[in-house]
């Protein structure tokens, strides 16, 4: 057993893990954060995507010991104070999920993507989602949702900027 520390969704966890345990299993089995799903355990389907120090990572291809000291965000960490993240809300409104199994991975991928590219084209969204597989939706509504979320996030940050601007001016 190796002792590691993970900061998950803002909470610090110290734990003993076997060197071979996958990060996905540690999140799911030990921290009971079962929102991160295992779809293929080969890094293809993307259902297990989490943010590892802000970058999307396949938790099924990451050994927990290598994440020692890392800051991790899972799907459970997206909503804040009972408020859905704009990307979650957009997935809901656009019917971007059916069975919901792949959804956490898509959400985490989209969160990171929109931080990098807040005003993407539809083609760019599809490209960004190309590492995640969905068997139910045919992707179209997921792309719609990311488009909607991008718009909402831009409007939100526009509001913030105008508030900041007015504060400075005032």
């Amino acid at each position: 057993m190796v002792s590691i520390t993970l900061r998950v969704n803002g909470t610090v966890h110290q734990m003993d893990v076997e060197p071979r345990w996958l990060l996905a299993d540690v999140l799911r089995e030990h921290l009971k954060l079962t929102g991160t799903h295992l779809g293929c355990e080969q890094g293809v389907c993307g259902a297990c995507t989490v943010l590892l120090n802000g970058q999307p990572a396949r938790s099924c291809l990451t050994l927990a010991v290598t994440a020692d000291g890392a800051d991790i965000t899972t799907v459970e960490g997206l909503a804040q104070n009972g408020q859905l993240h704009p990307i979650q809300d957009a997935f809901w409104q656009e019917h971007a999920l059916q069975c919901g199994f792949c959804t956490p991975g898509f959400l985490m991928t989209a969160v990171h993507f929109l931080q990098d590219n807040p005003d993407p084209t539809r083609a760019e969204i599809k490209e960004a989602l190309s590492g995640n597989l969905c068997r139910c939706t045919g992707y179209q509504h997921i792309v719609n949702a990311v488009e909607r979320a991008a718009k909402n996030l831009r409007e939100k940050s526009g509001e913030k900027e105008s508030i900041q601007t007015s504060t400075v001016e005032g």
């Binding site: 799911r28 079962t34 929102g35 919901g100």
Partner: peptide, 23 residues
Amino acid sequence: RGIPRVEDPRLIQGLGEYVSDIH
């Protein structure tokens, strides 16, 4: 009416319970 689903709030927050999540 094309209303969004009642199923979704749980699923989009990672709170859906699938068989593999049962412990």
